[in-house]
Simulated assay, not measured.
Amino acid sequence: MTATSTSLTGLRFGKGHGTGNDFVLVADPGGERELAPEQVARLCDRRRGLGGDGLIRAVRSKNIPEGTALLEENPGAEWFMDYYNGDGSISEMCGNGVRVFAHFLVTQGLVELGAGDELVIGTRAGVKVVARTADGYSVDMGHWGFIHPEQAPSGSDSLVETAGLAVARPALSITMGNPHTVVALADLSEMAAANLTVAPAVTPEPLHGTNVEFAVPAEPLVTDDVGRISMRVHERGVGETLSCGTGACAAAAATRFWAGDQAPDSWAVAVPGGILGVRFFPGSDGREHVELSGPAVIVAEGVFADGLSA
């Protein structure tokens, strides 16, 4: 079904977050609500709208072209996560957002998901499998990789200039289905000095832009077989956010690579909004996959008024 309407008047919405990464969520099973970029940006505006790092539309996969394509190989992916950055641009997916999306489907009565149950979700970065846990949700984020694999053995593939830091820093670009560029910093004072109200300049920049993560290893790096890092992030199309799920996976992947063969598979990533779990494991496709775990909260529900229509 092709979207035919831009009016959101009377449509119910939710507001949720995962470790402070917050989203406006709408249920549009039939794919009947067309969202213009300026409309999304207005809804995500923290003064003139509801406020959010992004907007997520829940659509049955059969009613959106990207979802229809996924159903051919993954018929269990009934729901598609139609994700937009806060500026209205379309993004591949969001690690925190997919957990909040699953929780939104549960709270809206659109799916049933008990502890230990799994839900298959379609995204522009492929199918993701979400499992409900005792204290939130875990997501098989799929395989990770280097954006520039030919340069990865050197440990860096780009330079990042950041306001507040005196010199450009080497960085490593990681794909989690969306692009990330990870910078290692020496300590928490350096991370605090980074001014992320200004977008970092990445040279060379990945084709469609990139999210930039600044990671500081704990001392010691590994405790009880768990690697520990702290992270801040500037998200493409959004700015600094309290958390980024795919960014936490990318930062853990880069740090683990830099640490060498003895680095652990389990990581705790401290972001300003809380702590995310990241685990690396062999996937059934023969490639290494990444699991992201953490909380998901719906904080409010409501109905759109006339003033928030396009």
Rank of each mutant, 00 (worst) to 15 (best):
V167A: 13
A131Q: 12
Q151C: 08
G52C: 09
V40D: 04
V24F: 00
N63D: 15
S154V: 13
T203P: 05
E92L: 06
I229Y: 05
I56G: 01
S89F: 02
S5D: 14
G97Q: 03
E161W: 02
P75N: 13
L207H: 12
G97P: 01
T210V: 13
G31D: 11
N195G: 04
V226L: 06
T197Y: 04
T246F: 06
R169T: 01
E205N: 11
T197W: 05
W267D: 05
V100P: 03
L242K: 13
V26D: 01
A168N: 03
A115D: 05
G227R: 10
L165G: 02
I90M: 08
T197R: 10
L55K: 11
L221Q: 12
T2D: 10
C249P: 05
H148N: 13
S189H: 11
M141F: 00
P282D: 12
V129L: 11
K15M: 11
L110K: 10
G18H: 07
A251K: 11
S189T: 14
D22S: 13
P179Y: 02
T107A: 05
L71S: 11
T175M: 02
P295K: 07
G126A: 09
E92G: 06
N211Y: 07
T255W: 10
C44F: 06
S309P: 02
A253Y: 13
E213Y: 08
L11P: 00
G277W: 09
A184K: 11
P206C: 05
E301C: 04
G286H: 13
D135S: 14
G14S: 09
A250M: 07
S266Y: 02
S158N: 05
C94S: 14
N85E: 09
P75V: 11
S154K: 14
P282C: 06
G122M: 07
V212R: 14
T133A: 00
D157M: 09
P220Q: 08
T181D: 05
P200C: 12
R99K: 07
T181V: 07
V160C: 01
G307I: 10
A215P: 03
R48P: 00
F80S: 09
L11R: 14
L35V: 08
V139S: 07
M141I: 02
G237E: 06
L105H: 02
A192Y: 01
Y84K: 07
T223Y: 08
H234F: 15
S61N: 12
V98H: 03
S243P: 07
K62Y: 00
L70N: 12
L188I: 07
E78P: 03
G227K: 13
E118L: 00
E150T: 15
A69M: 05
P149H: 13
L35R: 11
V303S: 09
V100G: 01
M141H: 02
S309A: 14
E161C: 03
A218E: 15
E219T: 14
G88W: 01
C44P: 06
L35Q: 09
V202E: 11
Q262P: 00
V212P: 13
A251V: 03
D135V: 04
F13Q: 09
H103P: 02
V24C: 01
T68N: 12
A215T: 15
V139Q: 04
G277A: 04
T9Q: 14
H143L: 07
R236I: 07
E190W: 03
A305I: 02
